[in-house]
Design a protein around this nucleic acid. Structure first.
Lengths: 185, 185
DNA sequence: AGTTTTGTTCAAAAAAAATTGAACAAAATG
DNA sequence: CATTTTGTTCAATTTTTTTTGAACAAAACT
């Protein structure tokens, strides 16, 4: 940070470091379209656009990509990519891959539907189901002690929610079993 | 807005019209808790809080409620309730009920899981699946004409997405069949 | 016919969620 | 061990979504 008369030997505008999108970062039209498809897809799951972009890019890239490459190809911030990758890694939707002679982490998309679904169920759905289970237990206790004229109605309703949750859990297992079957792609 | 010495015979603060929450609009603790549970639940589905509140309130109310009653009980705006009810009606999650001697529309919650799930699938999931189907067809065509060295890879990937979508559609049918079974609650 | 009640619509405001970017830490390099 | 590279974190900003509330229309009352 010392300021000698001519501090910088680089012209930021021309520096290859600063260049936002070198030739090799250009996406093919098909790639852009596939990414758009994923961006749309993850919206249904309630995930942010950047997550769809990152997963989509990795899915439609023949080779594993490093964080800074993703940043340049998608033209989104390093922070977004870092967070998005962490999220996708936690879900098991993205895998780190060792690339010899390069110390950056590289990532590929996990492309098996079963694994994707399982990751999503474990990471996003189950936690909600579990917290609902706890709350329901408390509710049942409250309803038992309730003295209002509606007490019976409340108990019926709470039983019903419990029933929903039970069937929801069963469904997740069924989904799991269905996706688990080996299919010839 | 004319200002004669004593314009208003009403004191806005005391007027029963202005009163935000009359005695009968008070929710019981259990009701509040159930509503909170639903607010949480609909978040998983990517729906706004107000929709969860409205459905939850109707679900845990013994009698059908009119729009303005919902407004007072939940203390949210008329606009929100109007929009939320329309959305829930479109999904089939809420049913209009005729109440004799009252010209306001009244609503109850549809409490059958099968119907709720079907409504959600029809209203929220299927449209997405269908638009994805169209896009995929276009993608397949593009990939066929693609001349890049990655063409084969792209085609494999697009086939895979098609496979996912096919299995997704099958899953929705399975869910449907599973929830359709008559269960003793 | 005028008034009130009921409900919808939509521009503006508020709230929530996602993204950025700069500061930082850790590891690798020379 | 100083420097560079790589990646994370998080406060501030931007974008998106939701909510509000006032204007409006339609129907029902008097």
């Amino acid at each position: 940070m010392s300021s000698s008369p001519q501090t910088s030997i680089y012209d930021p505008e021309l520096s290859s470091q600063e260049s936002t999108n070198s030739n090799s970062d250009q996406l093919e039209t098909i790639q852009k379209e596939v990414i758009a498809l994923f961006v749309n897809g993850v919206r249904v799951l309630g995930l942010p656009k950047s997550v769809g972009e990152i997963y989509g890019l990795l899915f439609i890239s023949p080779d594993p990509l490093a964080l800074d490459v993703i940043v340049r190809k998608l033209e989104i911030s390093k922070g977004s990519v870092s967070q998005g990758l962490r999220f996708l890694r936690n879900l098991g939707a993205v895998k780190p891959v060792y690339v010899s002679g390069d110390r950056r982490d590289h990532f590929t998309a996990e492309a098996e539907l079963k694994k994707l679904a399982n990751g999503f169920i474990r990471g996003e759905l189950n936690p909600n189901l579990e917290s609902a289970t706890l709350r329901l237990d408390e509710l049942r206790a409250m309803a038992k002690n309730d003295k209002s004229p509606n007490s019976d109605f409340f108990q019926e309703r709470i039983r019903r929610i419990g029933n929903w949750r039970r069937r929801g859990g069963m469904l997740l297992k069924i989904v799991n079993r269905f996706l688990g079957r080996t299919t010839r792609v």
